[in-house]
Amino acid sequence: MSRSAILPNRGLADRLSALFWRHPRVLLLLLITPPLLWLGVVYLGSLGALLLQSFYSIDEFSGVVVEEFTLKTYGELFRAANMDIILRTLTMSASVTLASAVIGFPVAYFAARFARGRWKAVFYLGIMLPLWSSYLVKVYAWKLILAKEGIITWAADSVGLGFLLDAVLALPGVGGNSLSTSFIGTWIVFVYVWLPYMILPMQASLERVPVSMLEASSDLGATLGQTFRTVILPLAMPGVIAGSIFTFSLTMGDYIIPQIVGTSARFIGQAVYQLQGTAGNIPLAAAFAVVPILIMLVYLSLAKRGGAFDAL
């Protein structure tokens, strides 16, 4: 019975462990300080700087940034050309989000409910694979696919559906000379590029819906449609909202895709890029950059009011 009840101290690691055991807050503090500093100083700091810039204005005659508080720059957002950009971006983001949700839901549902083992791996691979290749390569590839002399036109013509494509392209506002130079084209590429960001969170939230919940609904007399509307959708909503935050904000901030595929009409991201770069109009660029933030805040509060997070 010579063994001691207390093991000997083996050095620094043991002393540190003991310190953290006696004062758990010390460890917490150590762990959380660097990320908090990052978040607080770098992230919020730059956001603050951005916000500050948006309250400056550019002098009409000299083009100099006037560092005095004014709402004039925000007023400029309401000029017709700028409102166009905002509404165009908003419409695009909303329709991309909607399409991603509609297309992504069955995929996510299948993966969450039925895919097992190897099929699950195939699913993840299939969803993630497009994310591995370069974003630019994908967009350029789509430009070729959608081109006037590209594969879609060719395919449509060879099965005699060329008139359908022409009819789509003749649609006012969204049509154009070819898919690659139309809003529809931009929309298709956006949906393709951001779809995984919608599917993955939806799949995660659908996976958390117990099967018994669906059985209960059916057991109580609900049809498949009723179960979908009253149980699956509300319970998957946090995932749909999370996914839509991705697709919505990614679309709203993107400035590459509309530059390569589309009508050249500007989106917010492009406007910010161009205004801060070429034009040196930092205040207006900052004001434009604030728009997506505001839209997201409005969107989230609407989603919250709509009960999207009730099942969390």
Binding site: A216, G221, V231, P234, A311
Partner: peptide, 28 residues
């Protein structure tokens, strides 16, 4: 199942977390 006049009390109860108790009971 939805056409059988048979109802189940599930092991995990399977109550709908997004509905209040009244709506849960009134679901059928």
């Amino acid at each position: 199942p939805n056409r059988r006049n048979v109802n189940t009390v599930f092991q995990d109860y399977a109550l709908f977390p997004h509905m209040n108790v009244r709506d849960n009971v009134a679901y059928g």
